[in-house]
């Protein structure tokens, strides 16, 4: 009853300071209403558990951890819906330290040890 679709995600991989920028592409099946975050978690379960994804609250859009660049614009992965046949290019938040893949350190700078 729920419409199904398939989206393609081009995901920036690797850590800061690693050689050339690398993108992996994944085809992700989805049900209507599902988000980019749902697709990233699907990739982690079904394709590549090493994919690093920033998120916490999953549904509520309360934690704001999942902000990434989607097609060059900063958006929340958990509220951006997948579209059938679309290719989405995903990158970590610009201007932050990329710890790995889409996971960047978002706070200004780590506080010093006491």
């Amino acid at each position: 009853m729920t419409a199904k679709g398939c989206a393609r995600l081009r995901v920036r991989r690797g850590s800061e300071g690693e050689e050339a920028a690398r993108y992996d592409e994944f085809a992700v099946p989805f049900e209507e209403g599902e988000s980019i975050l749902d697709a990233l978690l699907w990739i982690r379960s079904h394709r590549d558990p090493t994919l690093a994804v920033p998120y916490s609250c999953i549904n509520a859009n309360a934690c704001k951890a999942c902000a990434i660049a989607i097609d060059g614009r900063v958006q929340y992965a958990c509220t951006t819906r997948l579209l059938d046949g679309r290719v989405f290019t995903l990158e970590p938040l610009p201007g932050k330290t990329q710890l790995r893949d889409l996971f960047a350190l978002t706070r200004p700078s780590r506080q010093k040890a006491p």
């Binding site: 729920t2 049900e31 209507e32 599902e34 988000s35 549904n59 509220t79 819906r81």
Partner: peptide, 10 residues
């Protein structure tokens, strides 16, 4: 449970 709703708590 359904349909998938994003941006709100279950």
């Amino acid at each position: 449970l359904a349909p998938r709703l994003v941006g709100v708590d279950p």
